[in-house]
Design a protein around this nucleic acid. Structure first.
Lengths: 242, 242
DNA sequence: CCAAAAGTGTTAACAGTACACCCATGG
DNA sequence: CCATGGGTGTACTGTTAACACTTTTGG
């Protein structure tokens, strides 16, 4: 059912003649501060939804000519992520989440948004508000978030992101994106607990961890964690450090 | 060369003034015929990639006014799916896959495509070519597909879809979308084997299946399968029959 | 030495794997 | 009655889960 509908000029299907939607990129940026899962939100300064919280994001930059067609959607996400957090590109893990395309999701006009989620290491999280464009961005706890009303369909996007990371933490390495470069087993366990909203048995978690050790996914790191009690050994993740 | 964007009424952020990409929907439609996983492909009739195989798809219909903003992206996928297969809407399972947004993925201009995958019951598969617009659509085996060159980035999209269903079949119910309404255990096992490209032990697969029985996910159905040997009992999936 | 949190050990239930064997049917 | 493929049983192994116990630190 391509361009059958329309009379077609030579060679080109003619799809340029149809109205096109705007394409946006929205970001669900997570971090963990004080053993609490937080999301980066901005306060909207303009209508619609003026004054309410929203996910950071922006529009895809599109070129005018076939030669210069603008940026990749992934590139746009990386750019926005860097702009909104003030952190250098490449320092934060991110991944495409889902595309939201309800016709009426933006009252201003037709906007299809490609949502991404990102995980900021707690080491970097405090630096975020220093960024230029990010002056209005804030870390909001996912706890108090239930009481807030978000702009557009951003509540749904956020819910999708939460579900995604809750699912992926069990079979992927995303948990390592939420701890410092070297970390103790209890620290990693705390990350799992915060994200899943449940507690894990110390011993059993440790055994799972040990399998990763023998599999070479993680390795011992120098140093210890100074706590109020017995100090914990620290480890390092031996994986793709983008 | 393309329609300059529209002037914008007051109050609006002005994103309408920027050039916008076209948004397409592409479909990876799977079925199983003769114990072989097949994908629905079309032969392109126009440049670019004239004559080569491509995924079915089409452009998102976008309205011109804030009141009439066109169809949801999901709706567009459902519509395309119905048009390309000739099957009624709602008869085929489909789900969003991933959004492909490389700037140069279409030489004609900027096109961001939201890819979906769909699973057609083998009962319906033979009816597909009867559909009006689908006269040029064909089921192609995923085996011989490796030897073909697909248009645009469709090879990558297809690969992503394959990986997705191979992953999901283990923890979801998508396998039931590739068998008739009533099916035997060996038939279901064949689906798993075709998709994963490996064989499963009869007895062990049966045990897994039995757990679903006691969990009430499936239930016995009337009838038997007539084979060249001992007839198999048939079952029914008690789930969302979209 | 005592509280607190790291780290170890033990056991039972369950799920995955491999494989041997029985059963119903068509030819 | 035999080949074929459905259906069952069993023994081994690894994983999960619950929980008790030991060790090392700071105060």
């Amino acid at each position: 059912m391509r361009a059958k509908a329309k009379p077609v000029p030579e060679k080109v299907t003619g799809f340029f003649e149809y109205p096109r939607p705007s394409v946006a990129v929205d970001l669900v940026v997570f971090t963990i501060i004080d053993a609490d899962l937080k999301v980066l939100l901005i306060r909207r300064g303009e209508a619609p939804f003026k004054g309410s919280w929203a996910l950071p994001g922006g529009f895809l930059r599109v070129g005018m000519t076939p030669k210069e067609q603008g940026e990749d959607v992934d590139t746009a996400a990386a750019r926005e992520l860097s702009e909104e957090t003030g952190l250098p590109e490449g320092s934060v893990f991110f991944e495409q989440l889902y595309t939201f395309g309800a016709a009426d999701r933006d009252p201003r006009g037709r906007v299809v948004t490609v949502a991404y989620y990102a995980l900021v290491r707690p080491t970097l999280a405090p630096l975020v508000k220093a960024g230029g464009d990010a002056a209005h961005a804030q870390w909001v706890s996912t706890q108090e978030l239930k009481r807030l009303t978000l702009a557009f369909d951003h509540a749904e996007i956020l819910e999708t992101a939460l579900t995604r990371i809750q699912g992926k933490i069990d079979y992927s390495n995303i948990a390592f994106e939420l701890v410092p470069d070297s970390f103790s087993i209890p620290e990693l366990r705390a990350v799992h607990e915060v994200i899943k909203g449940q507690s894990y048995d110390r011993g059993n978690f440790r055994r799972r961890f040990n399998r990763m050790l023998t599999d070479g996914i993680i390795e011992p790191a120098p140093g210890k964690r100074i706590t109020a009690s017995k100090p914990a050994k620290v480890y390092r993740f031996r994986g793709t450090r983008r």
